[in-house]
């Protein structure tokens, strides 16, 4: 599904290398977690995969279903099935959440040559999916993320994911700023989308989220590289001993 090879990335307008050769393969239907200390490059990787300006790929490649992600415009990556749940979802005053989502869903469908959803079809679908995430009608009407609490913003991300039905979901610290109940709700949302085909890359600081979203593989990232990979037990090791031991071990 996702195949990252020897990915090197620097900031576009600074001489600062952030990713220094990332190798990572996520198979279809798998859930991979990436953990790592602050500044290790986790978020940068999610941005580079989704096409955020400001980064320069100096070497390496990232393929999704065999097509070169890095050469595509962000909207084309989305239409091809990539989704990034933002660590800090952006507030967009003046654009209604519903308008935004319908535009997004139909833009993707159009790009893929599928029929666009009618207003009624869209409404029916979003109501069902919003209900499961405890998103009320008022949140759907309000401008995108404006005045949303931290938890509401994250739930709104998951709602977008549910509506857009991507193949490859990247969750960038979706657990940050959430209380236990909100985290459970978000995790349920994610688990509800696990259908054996859809793949996930879950970036997190804490093992806690992984109690709710069971990963197949856990990677530890440090200083722009994946330094260790293992099973779910690796996350527990981090939880108990922190990163220091692991980093020492691989140094």
């Amino acid at each position: 599904m996702l195949e990252i090879k020897d990915l090197h990335v620097k900031l576009a307008d600074e001489d600062k290398q952030i990713l220094k050769g990332v190798n990572l393969t996520v198979g279809q239907g798998q859930v991979h977690a990436i953990m790592g200390p602050n500044g290790s490059g986790k978020s940068t990787m999610s941005y580079v995969l989704s096409g955020k300006p400001g980064y320069e790929v100096t070497a390496g490649s990232a393929l999704m279903d065999g097509s070169d992600l890095l050469g595509m415009a962000p909207e084309d990556r989305a239409a091809a099935g990539l989704f990034l749940a933002f660590q800090y979802p952006v507030e967009i005053p003046g654009v209604g959440n519903m308008t935004f989502l319908r535009t997004a869903v139909n833009s993707q469908r159009k790009k893929r040559g599928e029929a666009e959803l009618s207003a009624a079809e869209f409404l029916k679908e979003i109501r069902e999916k919003a209900k499961a995430l405890k998103i009320d009608a008022d949140m759907l009407k309000r401008p995108v993320n404006v005045g949303f609490s931290g938890g509401e913003k994250k739930r709104n991300e998951i709602l977008q994911m549910a509506m857009l039905e991507p193949k490859m979901c990247v969750l960038d610290e979706t657990d940050s700023g959430l209380d236990v109940d909100a985290m459970k709700l978000v995790a349920e949302g994610v688990n509800g989308l696990r259908d054996g085909k859809r793949s996930f890359l879950v970036i997190t600081h804490y093992q806690r989220l992984l109690d709710h979203i069971q990963p197949d593989v856990v990677h530890i990232m440090a200083d722009g590289r994946i330094v260790k990979s293992g099973g779910a037990e690796l996350a527990l090791e981090v939880e108990n001993n922190g990163y220091a031991d692991i980093l020492k071990e691989v140094a």
């Binding site: 955020k52 415009a73 962000p74 952006v90 967009i92 935004f100 997004a104 833009s107 790009k111 857009l164």
Partner: peptide, 14 residues
């Protein structure tokens, strides 16, 4: 820029 990227990342053309 951030709003623009957010929209594009959801598949909305530029």
């Amino acid at each position: 820029d951030d709003a623009m990227f957010y929209l594009r990342s959801r598949g909305v053309p530029e």
